[in-house]
Design a protein around this nucleic acid. Structure first.
Lengths: 346, 346
DNA sequence: TTGTAGGCGTTATCAT
DNA sequence: ATGATAACGCCTACAA
């Protein structure tokens, strides 16, 4: 091993000044019990010697790392990128760093990442669980029992009673459907996401409730199963358009499928929203770029990240105090109305 | 302080087994000089006692953390999200963790993040510099001189001779423009990004070169300055469409502006690509969702991340050996042809 | 093959 | 107000 270009340590500074390392440590941490003189002397010398505190050593000693670990399925999905942004903002404010890991929606990988983060001695872990249906509840229970601060958001393993921040999918779906009804649409179809995921079950339920509350029937053929993708929307449109009577509005559990549906409709000369209205879910960035722009349900991603981080940090700091945040925080989504569902828009 | 729910350490295991901590350490690290028997005994006990290695302690001792720090302007831009994914993939393969920080395009914040990462003792730093034009070259030079492995990607501070991975913007712009020429378009305009950023200067140059090589003139009024945004594209279209003769194709340095231009064109009944063709830059995810789908220049983001990480890791591992990676790696972009620029598409 | 001892850089607890 | 000392958990010469 070549000699590491060894950084200056508090001992180096102490040596150069004929002082003790502990004094230097105190001075650098603005400890009150150090004279103004020596503090300034030390801080000056530190700058001069280009001193960089060794966070690792401090973490080892203090038993905390001031790091938050975040696990999401993938950072390149707009939803998670935005939640992470929220987490970062809040963490920053509190002097925490953030490590981001991706599970690629594999529960096994997710568990590996949890262990990795623990080895790194992160102070808290924030997780949006992998959606492969293979979550190991025992694994999570053990973590929680161990006292390790952990905070879920977005997707929470089922039947697990854990602190979490989620949005009310059902409410969002209800609002979206009710909006279509208000606009005067009569036959409202639903592109339904995979029902083994509860977020999609909730969206389906919101759709049903809104129709029921409006006294509308729900012809089963108006409910089409999709996966959240563009092509899925194209196919679904074809299927729905072959029905009699045809639907005149579609609430899609996915923006991507809605966009696919719009494109397929337009290629047949169907006018959106005059002949067929669309509203999606997630408020993906592209929704305002397509023609017509796509109405959607915003999931308050920034807020979700901020809240999740704040709760995690609170838990970390109050390890011994009242444990305030073992509840589930439910955020209200917000429907964003755009051209694809507005009859009177010019 | 309440007693930390103290994790089990190698000493605990050693105690439980009547062995020495160093033996436990060796066994856990598969050191060859430990008998099969004791190794298995120890590893079994470790599992039983739910032992989690303390990465922090090991990092302090070994002087390495196996962590890579990444600084980007913002994780919620598709470009960076994808590069990060590439970095993660490669890092993962090599047993490195990744910490992601955001500069929000503030050079000052970027410097703060660099210092934070150094305090965390990351083994290497990857940066896409903030684009506010306030990069402190001296700051970077000091880091490089200090021997800290650092690797730039995408946006590199000017006049700084550092290891970096970039794409060839000029080449991409050239190819995009040449494609429009090939398709038979005669009067090709350019939505030009802010010229204080070299990526936009390069794109402009590529555009000019392609026209020159094809023997085409370049009427100055066909060059319109934009910022990379939707509305900017709308305005630019209006400006261009008022000219005589009107352009029949537009190469935009930004996908967003191209999308804005398309929307504005369509609202006037202009047909795309028959009356006016468009090609953008960046291959943003939404490009295939809008109507017509938008041709664009793909920036090989995943590859960029992988290469940058690989080079950083190589540097880290070869601290003493031949320093292979102080060069600039230039990736070739790839033009993606879609309906917005294809005359014969159905 | 295993044990001993020292140290990575910092902070907390004594004592002075 | 400052100094001395020990300890955080791990790794690695070196010794046995």
């Amino acid at each position: 091993m070549a000699k590491r270009s060894s950084r200056t340590t508090i001992h180096d500074i102490a040596g150069a000044l004929g002082l003790n390392a502990s004094t230097v440590s105190r001075a650098l941490n603005d400890h009150p019990a150090v004279s103004r003189q020596t503090r300034e002397l030390i801080q000056g010398k530190a700058r001069e010697m280009d001193y960089q505190a060794n966070h690792i050593a401090a973490a080892l000693r203090k038993g905390r790392s001031d790091i938050l670990g975040v696990i999401v399925p993938a950072v390149d999905r707009a939803f998670f990128a935005s939640v992470i942004r929220g987490i970062e903002e809040e963490a920053d404010r509190e002097g925490f760093r953030v490590i981001v890991c991706q599970s690629y929606d594999s529960s096994e990988r997710e568990r590996t990442m949890v262990e990795t983060l623990q080895r790194l001695q992160v102070d808290g872990i924030l997780i949006s669980s992998a959606k492969d249906g293979k979550n190991d509840l025992e694994f999570y229970r053990r973590i929680i029992a161990s006292g390790q601060p952990i905070q879920f958001f977005d997707n929470v393993p089922q039947e697990l009673d854990v602190p979490s921040v989620v949005i009310n999918d059902q409410q969002g779906a209800y609002a979206a459907t009710a909006h279509l009804i208000e606009q005067g649409y009569q036959r409202i179809a639903h592109l339904r996401g995979p029902q083994h995921q509860h977020i999609y079950r909730d969206r389906f339920r919101g759709y049903l409730d809104a129709l029921r509350d409006a006294g509308r029937p729900t012809p089963p053929e108006y409910i089409v199963d999709i996966v959240s993708h563009f092509d899925s929307g194209k196919e679904s449109f074809a299927r729905l358009w072959s029905l009699h009577p045809r639907p005149d509005a579609i609430f899609s559990a996915s923006d991507f499928s809605a966009a696919g549906g719009i494109k397929a409709a337009q290629s047949l000369g169907v006018r959106v929203p005059e002949d067929l209205a669309f509203i999606g879910f997630s408020n993906e960035p592209f929704t305002e770029l397509i023609t017509p722009s796509l109405s959607s349900v915003d999931q308050q991603t920034l807020t979700m990240g901020q809240r999740a981080a704040r709760r995690a940090i609170d838990t970390i700091k109050q390890r011994n105090a009242l444990d305030v945040s073992h509840e589930r925080l439910v955020l209200s989504p917000k429907i964003i109305l755009r051209a694809s569902s507005l009859r009177n828009a010019k």
